[in-house]
């Protein structure tokens, strides 16, 4: 490791310590921090809920990092794909009466095919072009998706009432059943994708393409097909993320932007194209967000700042993120 590399890692660590203590300091300022037993129970609950939520974040962020790793495309429409997943689940639940988790059985294949189509129609043309072209194209795609969704579903907030009971995890910690279920699903799906990438032939080919597309091509890997599969998986992950988000939080067409920025923040924190980094980044962001919402009065607006702040500072301090991707 180079000297500057080590230094930036320390800086990042220092920044993260500050970022996590900031909500506490503000909380002390506003008197929301009380060092009594009840407050500590809240704190424990919030951190635990953050970890559960982080699993879901990590899962959809993996989709973003996968596309970036393989094709060097920054998908600015990723959050809109999450939003699409939420609406698919909502439609299945309210109009077809299908259980949100059962709905994944057919929404995921649909998402995969949509991803393949997207790759064929739009993204293949921008692979290898300047990163900004791909960013603009996907940004335009995201906008189109938002407004199409508004046309169909209006801007009203939707929620899916699903498993709302709370579960007593320990004596002090109680969380919603839906959160636990989401976490378990997210971890299972992430693990499945991880195992697929690690051990299957196709997964190995995807990783090889991410390392070096030209070499992969010379080794007889059909890179075009890898691109299709990658985008398919990425969109499926986003849609799965949407399904799991939809049973916990309200959503409308415009919430996609928030998911995009969260996914960016996670990917940048973890290190672009880095799978394990995305998992760590997801947990870290979600815990921070929950701390902010606990400590800061009027916290819902401020929660969004967590993702932006994290993203911008990490970009400035250590653009490669925790896992140190080498790039300017």
């Amino acid at each position: 490791m180079e000297k500057s590399d080590v230094r930036s890692l320390y800086l990042l660590a220092a920044f993260l310590v500050c970022a996590y203590s900031l909500p506490f300091l503000i909380g002390i300022q506003f008197g929301t921090v009380r060092a009594d037993e009840q407050w500590f129970a809240y704190l424990a609950t919030v951190v635990f809920a953050g970890i559960l939520q982080g699993g879901v974040y990590a899962m959809f962020a993996v989709g973003l990092t996968l596309i970036f790793g393989v094709m060097r495309i920054i998908n600015a429409a990723h959050g809109e794909m999450v939003m699409m997943g939420a609406y698919l689940t909502w439609v299945a639940f309210f109009y077809l009466g299908v259980d949100p988790l059962l709905a994944l059985v057919f929404t995921l294949p649909i998402a995969f095919l949509l991803g393949v189509a997207l790759q064929k129609v739009l993204l293949n043309a921008v692979v290898g072009q300047p990163e900004l072209t791909a960013l603009l194209v996907t940004f335009g795609l995201g906008l189109t998706m938002i407004y199409v969704a508004e046309l169909i579903f209006t801007t009203d907030f939707r929620t899916i009432p699903y498993a709302p009971q709370t579960v007593q995890v320990t004596r002090t910690i109680a969380v919603g059943q839906n959160k636990l279920i989401s976490f378990v699903m997210a971890v299972s799906i992430s693990a499945a994708v991880y195992l697929f990438l690690k051990f299957s032939r196709l997964g190995k080919a995807i990783r090889a393409t991410a390392l070096n597309a030209e070499v992969a091509m010379v080794c007889g890997i059909n890179v075009q097909r890898i691109y299709l599969v990658t985008t398919g998986i990425a969109v499926a992950l986003a849609v799965a993320g949407g399904a799991l988000v939809s049973i916990q939080f309200g959503f409308n067409p415009e919430t996609g932007v928030v998911y995009t920025l969260q996914a960016f923040a996670i990917v940048i924190l973890g290190g672009r194209g880095h799978y394990v980094g995305a998992l760590i980044g997801g947990l870290m962001l979600a815990v921070l967000e929950n701390l902010v919402s606990l400590m800061i009065p009027n916290g819902t607006a401020a929660v969004e700042l967590a993702a932006y702040g994290l993203m911008i500072f990490v970009l400035l301090i250590r653009p490669g993120g925790l896992m140190g991707v080498k790039e300017a």
Binding site: P130, A134, L135, F264, E304, Y308, M311
Partner: peptide
Amino acid sequence: YPVLRLKGPYFAIAMLGTAEGTRVV
């Protein structure tokens, strides 16, 4: 001063975040 050190798409994203951040503030 800090954000213009970022290149291409990272500047674009950071500015997207800046605008949202300003709105939140």
